[in-house]
Design a binder for these strands. Sequence first.
DNA 1: CACCCCCTCTTGATCGTTCCAACCGCGTGT
DNA 2: ACACGCGGTTGGAACGATCAAGAGGGGGTG
Lengths: 344, 344
Amino acid sequence: MAATQRRGPVVPPTLADVAELAGVSRQTVSNALNNPALLRTDTLERVQEAVAELGYQPNRAARNLRTRASHLVGMRFAPAQEGTANALMERFVHSLVEECRAAGYHVLLFAADHDDITSGYDELVRSTAVDAFVVTDTYLGNPQAAWLEQNRVPFVAFGRPWDDPDAGHPWADVDGAAGVAMATRHVIGRGHTRVAWVGWRKDSRIGEDRRSGWSATMRERGLPTTGLAARVEDTIASGKEAAAMLLDEAHPSAFVCASDTLAMGVLHTLHDRGLVPGRDVAVVGFDDSQAAQVVPGGLTSVRQPLEEVAVEVVAALQGMLARPRLVHPPRLLTPSLVVRGSAP
Amino acid sequence: MAATQRRGPVVPPTLADVAELAGVSRQTVSNALNNPALLRTDTLERVQEAVAELGYQPNRAARNLRTRASHLVGMRFAPAQEGTANALMERFVHSLVEECRAAGYHVLLFAADHDDITSGYDELVRSTAVDAFVVTDTYLGNPQAAWLEQNRVPFVAFGRPWDDPDAGHPWADVDGAAGVAMATRHVIGRGHTRVAWVGWRKDSRIGEDRRSGWSATMRERGLPTTGLAARVEDTIASGKEAAAMLLDEAHPSAFVCASDTLAMGVLHTLHDRGLVPGRDVAVVGFDDSQAAQVVPGGLTSVRQPLEEVAVEVVAALQGMLARPRLVHPPRLLTPSLVVRGSAP
DNA sequence: CACCCCCTCTTGATCGTTCCAACCGCGTGT
DNA sequence: ACACGCGGTTGGAACGATCAAGAGGGGGTG
């Protein structure tokens, strides 16, 4: 036996091998694995021993073919943009992988053409390579969400369906407005009254949502907002320029930003002007990126509970695949504030 | 027909459906896809039309079962450590996904128990869920590489087999010593003569390799190294302490570091002491992390050519799966230096 | 004209698993 | 004593693709 395995790839045992060793039929072995309650305890034990002895694992391809399920979840993996501080995905994907494992799923990554967003999805659906998708970039006006829904492809979104509040698919998201409100209250609590907002352009729904957390809190506390907001591209340079402009024209003592990238831009301006973050001017970012964690002095930032998002997403996936009719209720999760030197 | 598809999931067409529509047998359709040269051109066209009309894609599970190949590549996905600036994986994984797509493969992510490293691999191998693995964390004394080799599981490593120079598996790696040498020459070229090294503990093979790039270059230029090196944990705090110690005792005017995390630690000390990076003291990191890119002033850093690594890894995978006997020759790739404010 | 061969296409079997319906032994109710 | 239900088991048929081998027809050759 050892001699036959010395050369060439090891050929894994099959259900039939286990059945023969245990002295039962294939179906009994199958039941032992998928429906153990049907077996007498002594038979079950005998089968389990045989399974353990051979190191048997059911062949995925055969099982997939028969059950019409792959136990794979597809996810399009877009790279983090260089030169920004947005690195959510690594954290999220890891949590997702962990959660999926607990649920008996694996994560399949794929890339799509940049011009044809649906290409990757389409191919995987038609070849029945995955059971469902996790869609993460719903902020792009999500053409793929609409496409998936139209084609009755199961998927769960990380991100709200902004354009269609009662879309038929399950989703989980983080309450950006609540996070920014938390950040704003934090700096107000430290005595700041002129709190500026550096956010994204108006066409970003997420950006407007986050901004509302700032403006609502300011209004609530009776503080001014006019002239204290900037809406720019999500780059270091834009954040830097916006901060310079705001400092000159509106004299804020604190900045709340839509992203860590913008916040890092603000830090650049303070750095250039010899202002000390946290002492002269408070700065809060959003995402708790690695840059926020390691920048000298530290950047206070709103941290998304990506682990919880992953839990919700996988729960929704399981529900959706088990009972396709039932729609999992959406979940909106609350982020937390990580306080560091830039806004102590 | 439309009525039958209105409710419930759409059932994809099979080979038989295409065959019927094209008026040929199943096998002919199969040949049209896998071996088109065997068909007469007019038949081929007829089949291709039918394929296009039905939107046919071969069922993965069935194909996998029959061909005993899944066209999936497994990769263990470990999360980036919080509080450090090491975020290589996201970039590498994306490149890998792109390359795999070109080669007709997909990437399957999985997580393993922290105590039993081989658990995830074992399960996937025995269930024939993946054709091969990409192993990335070979620096941990790689128990999984040894295990995989022993069990004749195909895999390609990103990282050299440090402990076993002529290991039987293909690999690609980045020449860390060359990268550090490049960094060291850069600061020497700018007039620095007392160049310090902040690296990892001695038990790290990668760390010692990178260190050799510094020490060899210094020796080559006839510059002193004694008292100018520190070997510490890969954390911000350790880098910060090491920099303080070195500044007090050896008075270096430049720091070359084994990682961006350590380099950020050095920046912390400079920041505390009112020293300006790039003007008073030069600092070079390793990895070109997001933190290096966005920190005020910018951190000069050695950038790993992860895209090229991915190309090599996938090429090795293809060769290995096509001709298991032949061993793909290892490749050692040269990194580049990204110059920013900390060492202009 | 018969023979052979090559090119093209078809038929039957197979991969390893799960689903289906039938089967068997056994105890129970009538 | 016979039918019946029930827990436990059995062989056979699917799932959808590929592999192996064979069938049919046209053209070249002796």
